[in-house]
Amino acid sequence: MLSGENNMYRKMISLIILSFKEGVRDRALIGAGLFSLMMMGSALVVVSMFMRDLDKVSVDINLSAIAFAGLLLTFFVSINLMAKDIDKHTIYCVLSKPFSRSQYIWGKYLGIMLLIFMAFCILTICSSITILFIKSQYEFYFKSFSWIEFYKAVYAQLLLLFLLNAVVVFFSTITTSSFITLLFSISTYLAGQTIEEVVVFLKSKNAMDMPLSESINAIIDIAQYILPNLSVFDLKVQSAHAITISYNYLFAITSYSLIYSVILLLSASLIFNRRELK
């Protein structure tokens, strides 16, 4: 009765549900939700101030609202769920049960992902309603709008959060305070969003007049491999103009996000196995 695969499955589900429930009642969640709903609502007004790219503007605002809500969830709710769990010793609740450290990491991560996935579903429904409403008001300006491209951008945003939350989980296993985890995660996010542009800029400068030294070049190359390139998940502008994103590209970024997250979570498990929980 006490062992076997079925049991292990139930055990993990109970941990995922525990994290999900704890997160779903976090007050920061309500804040993030309200903020993005207000942003979507503002689209209804703001759109009328533009001349003709009304479809683009409403997609921009809605996708940004979703993206921003996702970031708020990650930096407030996930940090609460992961780093504070270790910080405040609520982790004893879980680890006094027959869970290994790795199971803890994966269960927590999947709980957070479940939470973010649900939040995304709700936000996507809300933004779809907003866009549908604007579309019915200004049908003429929505000729090039595409739902499929819109949902592709939402999906890419979800992939970004899969990766970013793995980053949060990773940092919470190596740092001793939730504040440092927050700091590191935000830094990684900022660096990940800008690395591509910085590299392009530096390399172009390199080609033109200011040759970079070997060592700087090497550092850039290493940074490019270590840091996640988060710009690849940003399809908002393309989606706003209904520019078709190929399924090949979507497949590539899906694999990228999955592999990067799995590497982070495996390293987190390794590190966390040795961690002393004083």
Binding site: V57, I61, S64, Q193, T194, E197, D234
Partner: peptide, 14 residues
């Protein structure tokens, strides 16, 4: 502004 806009370039342009 492009760097500072992170992934919010579209809405910043608006």
């Amino acid at each position: 502004s492009g760097l500072a806009a992170l992934e919010f370039k579209g809405i910043l342009s608006d």
